[in-house]
Design a protein around this nucleic acid. Structure first.
Lengths: 93, 93
DNA sequence: CGTCCTATATATAACGA
DNA sequence: TTCGTTATATATAGGAC
């Protein structure tokens, strides 16, 4: 989507990688927000740049998204309730 | 980005909302993957459709992304060491 | 580092089968 | 509803500030 076509592989040049990062990071966060609004979805996005800086977006709150994610995961990975009697896990954060 | 321009607000029609959801969800996940590869970033995306179905993407593992998110948050929300005597966080990374 | 500009690459809204 | 098709809307690569 620009003057030239690019291949999806790690950008070697540190400077261009940084530039591309900020542009695409903004694009991704915008898309996430649009998806959440348009489709009434609960979305959570976490991005760590290669320099370790955090960027995020969450339609509700990252906390609730993560909590919901856990619950959802727990459910789907417990297809064997018969042998799992003591299913008590606390959802923190 | 289609035949017509749209306003970013919840799509009332359930059917179109569903259609738009699957298209944009795929788009968002693709963008997330590209960002991770191109910019060597650590990305985590969690999406719950309005019907509650989970969709996700993570460059490494959602588990590690969430863990990293927590650490990152812990650090940044402790800008008041004066009143916080028991500030013991380990800086890793 | 973010911002503006502009030519292109992509994503996708509206349809049709 | 689930897929293609395609006309348009957007995102963004490249480059200059």
């Amino acid at each position: 989507m620009g003057r030239g076509k690019i291949v999806i592989r790690r950008i070697d040049n540190s400077t261009s990688r940084q530039v591309t990062f900020s542009k695409r990071r903004n694009g991704l966060l915008k898309k996430a927000k649009e998806l959440a609004i348009l489709c009434d979805a609960d979305v959570g996005v976490v991005i760590f740049s290669s320099t370790g800086k955090l960027h995020e977006f969450s339609s509700t709150s990252m906390k609730s998204v993560i909590a919901r994610y856990r619950r959802s995961k727990d459910e789907q990975q417990l297809p064997n309730p018969a042998s799992d009697i003591k299913v008590n896990h606390r959802i923190q954060l």
